[in-house]
Amino acid sequence: MSDAKQTPPSGSDSERDADHPERIYAFADAIEAERERSTDSEAGPAPRPETWVSFEIDREIYALPVEPVKEVLRVTEITRVPHAPNPVRGVTQLRGRVIPVVDLALRLGLPERQQDQGNRILVVGSKGRLIGLLVDRVHQVMQLDRNRVQAPPDDVMTSRSDFVTAVYHLADRLILMLDVDRVLVIREAQDVA
């Protein structure tokens, strides 16, 4: 659906990114600023653009609302949890809190793929929980216009329809919009690695 040319931070970009840790903080600041902005404008006129974070998995673009995204982390040491369900890569710690790291690709039913330097963990918080979602790379914080949000087409989504609630048409590409609570739901019959 998207080719390499359209993907802004390419592999080489993220390698440079690794040399410049401040970028990741700049990104976190951007999220922070957006969040403040969106809360400030709460009382304003109703149809305001929504702020989402876009990221890439298996050459496709996904997005989550900015609100639950607390932080973006580099992939550091992840401790494996034996006998955990397959999408769970393990656990890592964030300022003294142990958080699970879930491979979002596996969670969405996509094939396992090579890890690289550009991989990031989106830390999402919902209902008192804090969970890391491993994605290929993080793109940007963007304003989405509700009018261009559409229901997901049936054909593309079979395995992901549980998580993708809508699609967003950008000029020449499609962004798959995820529902964070559906991603974090605990299923009883999870595949065990």
Binding site: T79, V81, P82, A84, P85, V88, R97, I131, I186
Partner: peptide, 27 residues
């Protein structure tokens, strides 16, 4: 003792996790 989020299921043989002095998480 740091409990594990239910998304990791109830792994057999594991009751939780802890953080060592060097920051490593262990089961």
């Amino acid at each position: 003792v740091k409990s594990l989020d239910p998304i990791v299921g109830h792994p057999v043989g594991i009751s939780g996790s802890t953080i060592l002095g060097d920051g490593r998480v262990i089961m």
